[in-house]
Design a protein around this nucleic acid. Structure first.
Lengths: 211, 211
DNA sequence: CATGGTTGGATAGTGCCAGTATCCAAAGGA
DNA sequence: TCCTTTGGATACTGGCACTATCCAACCATG
């Protein structure tokens, strides 16, 4: 199919597709003539994934490029590629060294130990940066977020991971598993947050009288 | 204290504080002379909250203003104000009407029913918009996200809400409860997402052999 | 063979947003 | 008195995700 059709079937403007091509988020089409290129279903699928990562997952274009690049870097083995996406994801907020941050780091360390999550200290996952920063902000505001308070969140995260990886393992092909890992990691995030907010409304109504 | 001291104690530049004052995120200080204003601990606390909402919660400035405004709108009663913050939070992505969205809406409706969350259809919470949009994106990519798949997420969200509201109820004053609701809703979001990603790494290592 | 509309690629421009720099008159300290 | 500091108003900056314009090559039609 030509660019125009790719645009129509994906709902993304041709100008934006050209932009994604320029930015390396999408493989160039097969060149038919000097002024024509052909795209296939794989391009369409990839474009939909990119759109979802950027629009739903609020991911910066540059990060989406990293993630997709890592996901199809065939020099890595399966398990590594599964992690590579995750590793490319967060933009680390360059940990400060103020008092709140030190407290936060201690809480997080204690939490990881209580959860029995090892290997985090040897090769710290990039998700640790934002985690510590967030806990530090809570500390600064005086809210309780020591390991004891974080523990239920950690246990719930572990439950979620089991559910998520089950879905990943349902995918028949290795490439499909990689893509699923990326898509589910990112796209279930707004689902989770939305449900949590809805649950807050429900629980608040239950407790404080929701006539 | 003067603006300079407020800046120093909060770690926010005077220029940025002036910007927040302009944008109505912060009450003006008490005017001492024509060229001097005095700020107190309340300003400092509020400034820290604003910073956290914007930097950690990635909230647009305009939204932060709405949220804070709702939180201190004393014309509303306690339960309403607790919800007001939540209600002001998400920028609805203006639901489309394509096939995937219709499917998504059906799944979400079924989910809410299975969870026993009532009253959502009468006055739809703003969190529903993003939720449907996210599910629609997953549908478009062909991933399973019917009510059955969403249910564990919903139940987990309910668990989280109980934990969160417990912390809110620990706050002694009504105003403190409102602020806690806002702060915890927003600032625990990155905590939850980070922990989920860490859990993915753990679970992936467990399943796919993490030598 | 003309010829007029369409295509894909290169380039420069747009709009938004969060923050920053500059300027100014009035205060306050040495 | 003089010189720095203060708070406020205004205009500017930089980054980012697009988007509009231009252009030569292509293809279908008469």
């Amino acid at each position: 199919m030509r660019l125009a059709e790719l645009s129509e079937r994906s709902g993304v403007s041709t100008a934006t597709i050209k932009y994604y091509l320029r930015e390396g988020l999408l493989q160039p089409g097969r060149r038919v003539t000097a002024t024509q290129a052909a795209y296939d279903e794989a391009h369409l699928r990839r474009l939909r994934l990119v759109r979802a990562l950027i629009q739903i997952g609020k991911m910066p274009v540059a990060v989406a490029r990293e993630v997709i690049g890592a996901a199809e870097d065939t020099s890595l083995d399966h398990h590594l590629r599964l992690g590579a996406a995750t590793r490319a994801l967060p933009q680390e907020p360059a940990a400060a060294d103020d008092e709140a941050t030190v407290t936060a780091r201690r809480s997080v360390d204690a939490l990881l130990e209580q959860l029995g999550w090892q290997g985090m200290r040897d090769e710290p996952a990039p998700a640790l940066g934002p985690l510590v920063a967030s806990v530090a902000a809570l500390v600064r505001l005086g809210y309780p977020c020591d390991a004891a308070h974080l523990l239920p969140y950690g246990r719930i995260a572990a439950e979620l991971a089991v559910v998520d990886l089950d879905v990943v393992e349902e995918q028949p092909t290795p490439a499909g598993q990689i893509e699923a890992a990326v898509a589910l990691t990112v796209l279930y995030e707004p689902v989770l947050l939305s449900l949590r907010r809805l649950a807050h409304v429900q629980e608040s109504a239950r407790r404080f009288g929701g006539g």
